[in-house]
């Protein structure tokens, strides 16, 4: 993907000036592109006067940042404790098998990214699966199978 430099400058302009703003700047870039493009990381470090090594350290330390582009559908499985005791590990296993990727990876066709999250705080609905910010609660392997099939069919891959 080609990233227009001016766009990154604009994002950084909004964040510059505040002490400790490298994290905020990277957050905004992540929000915009759903990952941190290499160009943006370099530019942010230059613009904010932070060594690239520190920018990279920040980008790899915090879970919110990703150095790889995400798939069209980002499937998040809540691994909070409540979801865990209600069976979320089974759902993760099932999705890993179905898409043939591990949590944190993206399918080679860039359609599906599988992620685990540490508690979405909607524990009454556990186990929860979120697809691009849309929540599905009280999931079972049966319901999650239907969910995956629906997405696959939508993409004409069936």
């Amino acid at each position: 993907m080609q990233i227009p430099v001016s766009e990154i400058h604009e994002i950084i302009d909004r964040e510059a000036g505040d002490e400790g703003s490298i994290i905020s700047a990277l957050e905004k870039i992540q929000q915009h592109y759903r990952y941190l493009p290499k160009e943006a990381l370099i530019l942010a470090s230059q613009r904010l006067g932070v060594p690239l090594s520190q920018a990279y350290a920040v980008a790899t330390f915090y879970n919110a940042f990703s150095l790889k582009p995400k798939g069209k559908y980002c499937l998040q499985i809540c691994m909070g404790t409540a979801c865990h005791v209600r069976g979320s590990p089974q759902l993760l296993d099932q999705m890993e098998t179905k898409f043939n990727i591990k949590a944190g990876e993206t399918t080679p066709d860039h359609l599906f990214t599988l992620e685990t999250v540490n508690c979405l705080g909607a524990c009454a609905l556990g186990p929860i699966v979120v697809v691009n910010d849309e929540y599905s609660g009280q999931m079972t392997v049966q319901k999650s199978d239907a969910l995956m099939k629906r997405l696959i069919r939508k993409e004409g891959l069936d």
Binding site: S21, E27, Y62, N63, N118
Partner: peptide, 25 residues
């Protein structure tokens, strides 16, 4: 407001301070 970026350790107060300062937590 400072937004945390998803690191459990940042709940620890010295790590939290480092994070506000723009460092790794």
């Amino acid at each position: 407001i400072k937004l945390g970026s998803g690191a459990f350790v940042c709940g620890e107060e010295t790590a939290l301070i480092a994070s506000i300062e723009g460092q790794i937590g």
